[in-house]
Design a protein around this nucleic acid. Structure first.
Length: 289
DNA sequence: TAACCATCCTGTTAGC
DNA sequence: TGCTAACAGGATGGTT
């Protein structure tokens, strides 16, 4: 599932290919792939055609490519979305689930295409207006409410720690709330909580400040490590822009390891249902207090 | 206002 | 062999 490290890998892969490129053709094969796009403000394809792209940006799991006139091509990959670089002559019908094709011409590279593939159609593209957010950053309107992510140098640690003290919700629910801190999904929430020895259902406001700071540090460690390993791939549902899988799945300690021994103490990892998804944790190291 | 939950979607797998 | 149900989970809007 694309979380912060996976989206960042995609952003890094896209950057050299799209920065400075001009859109020469747009094909939308499935309207569900642009559900985030406000049709009242014009056709997605018509408005994107002819626009010049600037360097891609990211906040949390949202990725966008600013355009030369105050708007941006916004992308959220959802669960199975992929942005893939292809030769301009590659045929979308030769691979499954290609929902959108954007053809580009680049001042110094040859022509190429970006395919937006998405099996489960939870992802979406949109054209969105850039608006001023905190610290003067320009972000798409749909991203304005998303908190900075833990790898952002301007991430406000103290604001996050204070927010924890005001929430009675389970800590995992808070980690998954992109308004509190962004970029964390089910996989890295389980991994960071395992590393910090915190039960997923521990109320956020019962964590000591020291424990909360430890958790934030572990979140940063797990995200950074996943980034260096190219992200987490369980199957073909997460790949970089060249279609290559990441290696971080081999480094997981809790997520997806139900019944396997905890790498610290050997106790079998358990899986429980939580928020319509699964939580994995060590019942010995991560006790509800 | 905070907290929580249903909903969207499709490929895979388990169970019958 | 074929059918059905369960499952995976990010963001969001609605309800409590």
């Amino acid at each position: 599932m694309p979380e912060l490290p996976e989206v960042e890998v995609v952003r890094l892969g896209l950057a050299p290919a799209v920065t400075g490129a001009v859109v020469t053709a747009v094909d939308v094969f499935d309207e569900r792939a642009i559900t985030r796009h406000d049709r009242a403000r014009g056709s997605f394809a018509d408005r994107l055609l002819g626009r010049r792209m600037l360097a891609p940006k990211r906040r949390g799991k949202f990725l966008w490519i600013p355009l030369d006139d105050g708007e941006a091509l916004l992308a959220h990959l959802g669960m199975t979305g992929q942005l893939l670089l292809r030769e301009s002559w590659a045929r979308p019908q030769d691979e499954p689930h290609v929902r959108v094709r954007v053809e580009l011409t680049h001042p110094s590279l040859h022509e190429l295409a970006v395919f937006f593939r998405d099996q489960r159609t939870f992802g979406s593209l949109a054209l969105d207006e850039l608006t001023a957010a905190d610290a003067g950053d320009l972000v798409p309107g749909q991203v304005a409410h998303i908190a900075r992510d833990p790898l952002d140098p301007l991430c406000d640690d103290s604001a996050f720690l204070v927010a924890l003290t005001r929430k009675s919700s389970a800590i995992k629910r808070v980690l998954l709330d992109q308004r509190a801190i962004s970029g964390i999904g089910n996989i890295y929430a389980d991994e960071a909580l395992w590393a910090a020895r915190i039960h997923p259902e521990q109320p956020a406001n019962t964590l000591s400040r020291a424990k909360a700071k430890l958790l934030l540090a572990e979140i940063r460690l797990v995200l950074a490590k996943a980034l260096t390993e190219g992200g987490t791939s369980f199957d073909s549902q997460y790949v970089n822009v060249n279609g290559q899988a990441g290696y971080f799945a081999h480094s997981l300690n809790a997520y997806g390891r139900e019944g396997a021994p905890c790498p610290r103490c050997g106790t079998p990892i358990v899986r429980v249902s939580f928020m319509n998804r699964s939580s994995h944790f060590c019942p010995r190291d991560q006790r509800l207090r």
